[in-house]
């Protein structure tokens, strides 16, 4: 355990060494929320209070982006040689996987935390909601990180193909979901696709804990089950795939 926390400490130091990158995330949120969000919510009269609906959607998009970054960082580590060095250290492979997840969760918390607090504060929500919504966002990020790290085996063959797959996956998952528009406003074809999208369940669960327009959301029970199942499944997949992938890498 000592080795893992030592590694985590050093990786956190490297991650947050680049302050502009973290500030960029906050700037991106601020610009989208206060400029684009304000403008677009004037045009959209339904659902009621689309500005808040958009704000929560934006938080999920950012969670997706930061969690994707964790997978990308993992891949970059392999290409730069950092990962190979870490593999030579006396650390269990399963521990290394857990450390990468923990690193991703902390990065998520630091980058998404302030925007989340801002949205909740501006909308007068109680502090308890901060805890539940943070739990939802972190659970979602575990699932997304699991997917991205599991996909990393593609990157060891070709970084270009990995980037293309991640970009396409992001585009599909975000658009075919309830992140930016609820089910009731979707064409039937969209809706049937969105129901198979785990982000739909994550988005609806977040809005449920914030008590936003509950009548339009999926049942929170189902959403909890789906978010937890996706997180566990991708974690398990990653734990099986990653060690095999890493130790099969010829050169990086």
């Amino acid at each position: 355990m000592r080795e893992l926390f030592t590694l985590l400490g050093y990786e956190l130091r490297e991650t947050f060494d680049s302050i502009p990158w973290t500030v960029y995330f906050w700037f991106y949120f601020g610009f989208q929320y206060f400029v684009y969000g304000q403008l677009v919510s004037r045009l959209i009269l339904e659902p009621h209070d689309y500005y808040l609906y958009y704000g929560t959607g934006l938080l999920i998009i950012m969670t997706f982006n930061v969690a994707s970054w964790s997978g990308r960082r993992f891949v970059e580590g392999a290409h730069e040689g950092r990962l190979r060095y870490i593999l030579s250290l006396p650390i269990r492979r399963s521990g290394l996987f857990a450390e990468q997840l923990l690193l991703g969760l902390i990065a998520n918390l630091v980058r998404i935390g302030p925007p989340l607090v801002l949205v909740l504060w501006l909308n007068g929500m109680p502090p308890a909601v901060l805890l539940t919504s943070t739990a939802v966002l972190l659970s979602m990020s575990v699932g997304i990180m699991g997917i991205m790290i599991s996909l990393s085996f593609i990157a060891f063959k070709s970084f270009d193909i990995y980037s293309a797959i991640v970009a396409t996956t992001s585009a599909i998952l975000i658009r075919f979901s309830t992140i930016l528009y609820p089910f009731s406003y979707m064409p039937e074809a969209y809706e049937s696709v969105a129901r198979f999208n785990p982000l739909t369940y994550g988005a609806d669960l977040l809005r449920n804990v914030m008590s936003i327009d509950v009548s339009q959301l999926l049942s929170p029970g189902t959403a909890i089950v789906v978010v937890a199942a996706v997180g566990l499944a991708t974690l398990s997949l990653g734990m099986v795939l990653v060690p095999r992938t890493l130790e099969g890498v010829r050169s990086s």
Binding site: E3, T6, L7, Y10, R13, E14, D17, S18, E80, G81, R82, R84, Y85, S88, L89, P90, I91
Partner: peptide, 29 residues
């Protein structure tokens, strides 16, 4: 891994870190 140590062909490690921190990390591990 507790017994062996490897010095790689190409320098590996933490690109943004400084020599002091890189060795310090290795020692702490």
């Amino acid at each position: 891994r507790e017994t062996i140590g490897i010095s790689f062909q190409e320098p590996r490690g933490f690109w943004r870190h400084k020599p002091y921190h890189i060795l310090s990390f290795h020692a702490a591990i």
